[in-house]
Nucleic acid binder design. Sequence first.
DNA 1: ATTCGTCACTTGAATATCACAAGTTACTCT
DNA 2: AGAGTAACTTGTGATATTCAAGTGACGAAT
Lengths: 128, 128
Amino acid sequence: MTSAENLVKGGRKRSACPIASTLDILGDKWSLILVRDLLTGKQRYNQFCDSPEGVPTNLLAARLRKLEAQGVILKKPYQTRPVRYAYTLTPAGRALLPVLQEMSRWANSYIEGTWTPPEAFMSMKAKV
Amino acid sequence: MTSAENLVKGGRKRSACPIASTLDILGDKWSLILVRDLLTGKQRYNQFCDSPEGVPTNLLAARLRKLEAQGVILKKPYQTRPVRYAYTLTPAGRALLPVLQEMSRWANSYIEGTWTPPEAFMSMKAKV
DNA sequence: ATTCGTCACTTGAATATCACAAGTTACTCT
DNA sequence: AGAGTAACTTGTGATATTCAAGTGACGAAT
C-alpha cells in the first residue's frame, strides 16, 4: 500500500490515463534530465547548471519548484551561513529509475551516437 | 546489430546522453500520447483526435510530421478514392513499449486516480 | 445537381513558454 | 575593500501552444 505522503500531486490531469498523467508532470525537455542528475548523485543548483545539456537558469529554478510542489523532489538547506540547499529525490522520484533505464536502453538501440550509461546505472535498483 | 533503417534521426542533440537524446525526440506533452494510441491500435488522424486528452489538431499534424521525419512512425495511404492515411509505428516506435509500461507502473503507484491499463497492455512484449 | 457529412488537415490570433544574457542578494575569503 | 561563489531573479525577444474556425477532396443522400 502506498501511503499518502509518497504520492505526487497530480494537479489537473488531461485524463486518468497513467501515461498522460505522467506526462502532465514530467512531459517536457528538462524535468527528467534533473531526475537523471539527482539519481546520479547531483544535489545542488550549480551542479545541475553544469550538466552538458545546459539548462537555462530560469527554467532550472522553475522546474525545481514545480517538481518539489509535485512531490518528486525535496529541497532543504544543508548548511546555514551562508545557506545552501540540497535537492534530493522523494521515493516517488527515485521510483522513476526504471523509466529512465528503459529510455536509455531505447536510445542506445535506436539513436546513433548515444553514450552507453555506466553499468552501475543500468543495473541499479530503485530502493523506494 | 541494429540496421541503419531502424534508427531514428536524432537531429541536433543537446548531448550524447541517451536520456537527453530520447527527450530531444519525445520530450513533450503529446508525442508519447500518440505512441500510446498507436500501440493500442489507433491508426488514423481522427482516432487520435478522439483520444480523451484532446490534442489540438495543428499540434497533432505537427507531431505526426515530426515523428515520421524522425523514423518513429510511418504514414501511408491505405486507400485511394478518397485517399485515407494510416499511421503505424516503425520498429523503433514499437520498441518504446517498455518505456510506456514503466511510466504506467510509476503513475499507478504514485499518482492518485490513474487507470490501471489493461493487463494485455502491461504484459505485451514489443515485437520489433 | 445541390446540399450534407466525413476525413485530414491549415490558418490565424491570443497566450504561454523558452532561451539567452544580465543582474541581484547573501555570504566568505584575502 | 575587493573578489569570488551559490542560488537565484529579471528582462527581452523568439518560439510554441491553445483554441477556434476554415479548407478541399470526395462520397452519399435528397
